[in-house]
Design a protein around this nucleic acid. Structure first.
Length: 469
RNA sequence: GGAGAGAUGGCAGAGUGGUUGAAUGCGGCAGUCUCGAAAACUGUUGUGGGCUCCGGCUCACCGGGAGUUCGAAUCUCCCUCUCUCCGCCA
């Protein structure tokens, strides 16, 4: 949530930010409640102050065995008045607090203003050595499905050429065949190899639930272990294993509730929610706590399944892994000093990218425009992997800086070494990575002409084999 | 699921209707002493809201929420959580 003082002092800037994020502008409504609230507090506090003074006086009189009945009578009416104003205040205050939770975080100044995913800006792309980048460009021209505005795509073309130029003789690309050569999509590959079974997943739970079998299950587990080991050993994160079901407070702390409540799976009897991402439990680890400045940055990573109802998106991207209700992910979360949270964001994106480089997966990095930014984020980079069969970029990671938005909601502070005062820290998180869409790209990009799938070098020790099939 | 005990400041732990925002101890911070440190001694040490002539003033907070009262950490009710024992079970 935003600081009400900031909203009070910068109403126009806040309104602009809200609108750039395509959120409902209720800033004036909020400010009216704020004003009303403060007026009621002033009146009620004045009366309470009087009551406190007179009560002391009554105590003194009684101690001296003097008569206090006149004062007691007077205080009866004051008490009634206080109750009246208090009741009024609690109504206003509740409305105020609720509404404040609906005001989104402000986009950072460096974020491009835009309406939708179309306006996201590609900042770089990376292709494995020898990868046929031309085929991606051709596919992108063929369909404008993939995001990225003209400027971004144009700008990135140079970058892509740079990467691809090394192995410009695309024909000679690695034995895995390179881009655009996949003749089957991940659902077909998974079915043929007997490692993915979406029909039976549907039988078990409904559409949007996957069943992994044999090497499919092992590959999934291998990916997760690889991610965790990588972040722990190479990037200095500490691993955590959290509950996957959390209470309402936790969901509120990271901002999923109230706005996104309908997208959560809920256990109504217990007032608990299945987590949509490990961001929720990991960030809430330090809810209502104060960290020492010297301990920052705190870098945690953890595995979790992610549960999303995907309400309102039925029928869209429904094939296979493209949009599922449950997927696995390793999440990175950082608690950092406010002064360097944007540097930390760049590092976070790099940490996620390193995984894709290690797996030789072609990807691009997008800076989300204001309109595509999530409710709580101030700035966000998406990392998308290339699917030769879908001829699309698929989101595999999302790395965001929330500044003090979540910290304020969840009350996560740090104590400054210099003056021992507390202040809100900044939180960031990023997928590192989500397996489902990565699996799409991984299977398709490593598909061999004989229908088998090459296991990326980095995963072989985890899987215990070089080829699936 | 049944029975009982409990929840107070960073921690430990007093406090059962009136200068209690809260004793005391530990810890933290500052100072004295010291070449320096330890010890000892002295002082200081919560969070949040509202107002402010930026010197302060004021309100709230003793797990959460209602209530009784002129006045509640203290009395009543409800809820949550923790611990112990029994039962059940991975």
């Amino acid at each position: 949530m935003l600081d009400i003082k900031f909203i009070r002092e910068n109403p126009e800037a806040v309104k602009q930010g809200v609108e750039n994020k395509n959120e409902k502008n209720r800033v004036d409504e909020l400010l009216a409640l704020d004003k009303q609230r403060r007026e009621l507090i002033a009146v009620a506090d004045e009366l309470k102050s009087k009551r406190n003074r007179v009560s002391d006086e009554i105590a003194r009189l009684k101690k001296n065995k003097e008569d206090a009945s006149a004062l007691i009578d007077e205080m009866k009416t004051v008490g009634e008045e206080i109750k009246k104003y208090n009741d009024e205040l609690s109504v206003v205050d509740e409305k105020f607090s609720d509404l404040l939770l609906y005001i989104p975080n402000m986009p950072h100044a460096s974020v491009p203003v835009g309406k939708s995913a179309e306006d996201n800006v590609e900042v770089r792309r990376w292709l494995p050595d020898g990868y046929d980048g031309e085929s991606i460009l051709a596919a992108e021209k063929g369909s404008n499905v993939a995001g990225g505005n003209a400027a971004g795509a144009g700008g990135s073309a140079a970058g892509a050429g740079e990467s691809a130029s090394g192995g410009g003789s695309a024909a000679g690309a690695g034995e895995s065949g390179g881009a655009g050569k996949a003749v089957a999509d991940h659902v077909q590959i998974g079915k043929k190899l007997g490692i993915l079974d979406f029909e039976r997943g549907t039988k078990l739970s409904g559409s949007g639930f996957a069943l992994y079998m044999g090497d499919g299950a092992t590959l999934e587990r291998a990916l997760l272990n690889f991610f965790l080991d990588f972040h722990i050993n190479k990037h200095g994160y500490k691993e955590v294993m959290t509950p996957f079901i959390v209470n309402r407070e936790s969901m509120k702390g990271t901002g999923q509730i109230p706005k996104m409540e309908d997208d959560m799976y809920a256990c109504e009897r217990d007032g608990l929610f299945l987590i949509p991402t490990a961001e929720v439990p990991i960030t809430n680890i330090y809810r209502s706590e104060v960290l020492e400045e010297s301990a920052l940055p705190v870098k945690l990573c953890g595995f979790s399944p992610c549960f999303r109802r995907e309400a309102g998106s039925y029928g869209r991207d429904s094939k296979g892994f493209l949009r599922v209700h449950q997927f696995n992910k390793v999440e990175m979360v950082k608690f950092v000093h406010p002064e360097n949270s944007y540097d930390e964001l760049e590092l976070l994106v790099n940490d996620a990218e390193d995984i894709l480089k290690a797996l030789n997966i072609p990807y691009r990095v997008l800076m989300l425009c204001t309109g595509d930014l999530s409710f709580s984020a101030a700035k966000c980079y998406d990392i998308e992997v290339w699917s030769p069969a879908e001829k699309k970029w698929l989101e595999a990671s999302s790395c965001s800086n929330f500044e003090d938005f979540q910290a304020r909601r969840a009350s996560i502070k740090y104590r400054r070494s210099e003056d021992k005062k507390t202040a809100f820290l900044h939180t960031l998180n990023g997928s590192g990575l989500a397996t489902s869409r990565l699996m799409v790209s991984l299977l398709e990009n490593n598909l061999r002409p004989d229908g088998k799938v090459n296991v990326p070098e980095a995963l072989r020790q985890y899987l215990g084999k070089d080829v699936i099939g």
